[in-house]
Design a binder for these strands. Structure first.
Length: 666
DNA sequence: GCACAGATGATTTTT
DNA sequence: TCATCTGTGC
């Protein structure tokens, strides 16, 4: 990438006279604009780093941005600069203004499974699937800043009616636990700013210039937070791309782009249309596909790169065939082009499509890495440990109390917890506080009480130490005291226990490191953990083919991309076709195409297994929408390959590859 | 009535 | 893969 900035990039960086929207096409250098603008604000305009905030959606993006700012400014990020996610900013605001939010500073942050648990409890809904859907509905309302009273009026089906009925109680339960969910991290600050001028002005003075990444992904609540923070001054730069808005289903509202123009009539709109990533044929296909969508802002990507290879579309018999072909093609291409495995990505619509690909890659000895997957902090063993940390921080957190009380088992069963629960409800205090009250002895047997208080004393002792001693040591002692390792091996198979214990070790190691780096104690660390989903320990040196969903691939780029399962019903997905939401699927296709730098291979299956039957599939409409400059690769025209022949060819290829690598290395 | 093995079948999931 | 469903054996 050239070190020079192009004209629109410069314009975006130096424009400071008012609100600014940068429409940054795929691969047009948007992160560069944001980081250079931060540097310019500090070095060129004399604005203190303390007064600048750069807001992203993911921790990964925040981290990358911080690193790039540091790099720009001579290796060290300026102290006081705020580069964080929306939710991390929310945590900071709530922590500082806790009293105004009706919370204590040590509030708990609940994750998805905690909130489903609460909905399920409040609604007396045994079915976790239904509770999940109800929680989803409540979350959507909260993202749109719709309070329970309004939600009751808006409910229009059985599920949303049930959700509306428990919404209020759900909110009260959260407050009773001194807890917030992810949505509260945005909506509580919004509510605070909208009702308290003094607090709002304080924060407006604190963050005098805001930069927002991936603006098209903001939801209503996030937009209102930005608006409150910016006030009428409108000192902000929002960077986004409406063509890459693929999170509408999660509450992101592209309408926020229109709102920006409406709410800030002086908004300066700057388009970044020069693409530095892909060859011309790939860009043209992307442009042609996306031109089928109605657009708010017209934008056409162009590139100084050469035309590059033709995009190839290959038909496959079924998913297995497809996986086999992709794996084979990668091996062959790698051999010819002398590339690395990490130069390739296989992208797909749904996670389940990865399974069959993985199988083939393993068969053909191709190393791979999968992005996404379930979050590290969602694992049972990590959540077990986390429940202790949460309880140490916030004794009102009843969910954490119950989980840590019962994991590992301490001979305290449901009847004891139920009795304690009845008493605590009558006293309007948390479970932890309730068991130390005199009155508890009326509802609980002396033996029950003894067990509970022993646990309570244990927690109190650890809590005392957690405030003073380094995180690592306290955690090690806690694990020993609850005999967690032994419990794992008693409860699971050896292999499973080993893997779980190793995860726990990773977690402890991570916390210890964090504690030392930031000089924070265990309690201070706990709150930030909830906002992290992945432990950033991915090895950048590992050479493997990247597997990712189209959603997870946003923001990444690869020399060679395979886009698989490009069929009607798959991409666009059937439910999107049914609900008339093909636009978003088209943007997904656009995101997929624009990940590719040099070559793009698209495959589709002619049949796909649906239960026992195998249904005939049509190639996706998006293939036709890419225009004519495509190489159609008809596999049926080629000589049929039997399994044996295929294996023999593969063995041949592998042998060639191995001998070449040996020679090359020696 | 329950625990468990085996089958089944699937949107996407930044915090 | 993983969560959920189904049928079996006690």
């Amino acid at each position: 990438m050239s070190a020079l900035l192009n004209a629109p990039q410069r314009e975006a960086i130096y424009y400071l006279d008012g609100p600014c929207l940068v429409l940054a096409g795929a691969g047009s250098g948007k992160t560069r604009v944001i980081t250079h603008k931060i540097a310019h604000l500090i070095n060129g305009c004399g604005i203190s780093a303390n007064n600048i905030g750069a807001i992203t959606f993911t921790n990964k993006a925040a981290k990358e941005m911080q690193e790039r700012v540091a790099h720009l400014m001579g290796g060290r990020a300026p102290g006081g600069l705020t580069v964080c996610t929306f939710h991390a900013l929310g945590v900071r605001i709530i922590r500082q203004e806790a009293l105004h939010c009706g919370l204590k500073k040590q509030f708990s942050i609940l994750d998805a499974s905690d909130t489903v648990q609460i909905v399920s409890d409040v609604a007396s809904e045994g079915d976790k699937g239904i509770a999940k859907q109800m929680q989803w509905q409540i979350s959507s309302w909260k993202n749109a800043m719709i309070p329970p009273e309004e939600a009751v009026k808006l409910a229009d089906n059985e599920l949303s009616f049930a959700a509306a009925k428990v919404f209020g109680e759900y909110e009260r339960t959260l407050r009773a636990y001194q807890a917030v969910d992810f949505d509260d991290l945005i909506s509580l600050p919004v509510h605070l700013f909208e009702t308290n001028d003094e607090v709002r002005e304080r924060w407006q003075n604190r963050l005098r210039y805001l930069l927002v990444d991936e603006y098209q992904d903001t939801n209503r609540a996030q937009y209102r937070l930005l608006r409150q923070l910016c006030g009428v001054r409108g000192a902000f730069t929002a960077v986004g791309d409406d063509d890459q808005a693929i999170y509408a289903w999660r509450g992101a509202d592209v309408e926020n782009l229109r709102l920006l123009q409406k709410d800030y009539p002086k908004l300066r709109v700057i388009k970044l249309e020069q693409n530095y990533r892909s060859s011309r044929r790939i860009l043209e296909a992307a442009n042609t596909v996306i031109s089928h969508n109605e657009k708010l802002f017209e934008k056409t990507l162009w590139s100084e790169h050469g035309p590059g290879e033709q995009i190839a579309v290959t038909n496959c018999r079924d998913a297995e065939h497809e996986a086999e072909w992709v794996a084979m093609k990668i091996t062959a291409h790698k051999f010819e082009a002398r590339t690395r495995f990490k130069d390739y990505a296989i992208l797909y619509r749904g996670n389940h499509q990865a399974r069959i690909i993985e199988q083939q890659l393993r068969n053909q000895r191709i190393p791979y890495v999968m992005s996404g997957g379930q979050s590290f902090f969602d694992r049972a063993e990590i959540r077990d440990l986390l429940s202790y940390l949460r309880l140490l921080l916030n004794p009102d957190d009843d969910l954490a109390f119950i989980r840590s009380l019962t994991t590992p088992r301490r001979g305290i069963g449901p009847s004891t917890i139920e009795a304690l629960g009845r008493y605590s409800a009558s006293r309007h205090v948390g479970l932890f506080a309730a068991m130390f009250e005199e009155g508890a002895s009326v509802h609980l047997t002396p033996k029950q009480l003894e067990g509970l208080r022993e646990f309570g004393d244990f927690i109190n002792r650890i809590q005392y130490r957690a405030q003073r001693e380094p995180a690592g040591q306290v955690l090690e002692d806690l694990l020993l005291a609850i005999r967690y390792e032994a419990w794992l091996f008693e409860h699971c198979g050896t292999r499973e226990a080993e893997s779980k214990w190793s995860n726990v070790r990773d977690f402890v190691g991570w916390l210890t490191r964090k504690g030392e780096e930031d000089g924070k104690n265990l309690l201070e660390l706990t709150q930030t953990i909830a906002l992290i989903s992945m432990l950033d320990k991915e090895d950048p040196d590992f050479d493997g083919v990247q597997l990712a969903t189209l959603h997870a691939s946003k923001g990444l780029e690869f020399p060679h991309v395979f886009l698989i399962g490009v069929e009607e019903g798959m991409l666009p997905h059937q439910s999107s076709i049914d609900e008339d939401k093909v636009d978003e699927e088209r943007r997904l296709m656009y995101v997929g195409i624009t990940r590719a730098q040099r070559s793009l291979n698209i495959t589709y299956c002619e049949r796909r297994k649906m239960g026992k039957e195998s249904r005939v599939c049509e190639p996706s409409r998006f293939i036709a929408e890419m225009g004519g400059d495509i190489k159609m690769n008809d596999r049926k025209a080629a000589a049929p390959v039997t399994k044996e022949e295929g294996k023999a060819r593969l063995a041949n290829l592998m042998a060639m590859l191995e001998s070449r690598d040996k020679n090359g290395a020696g």
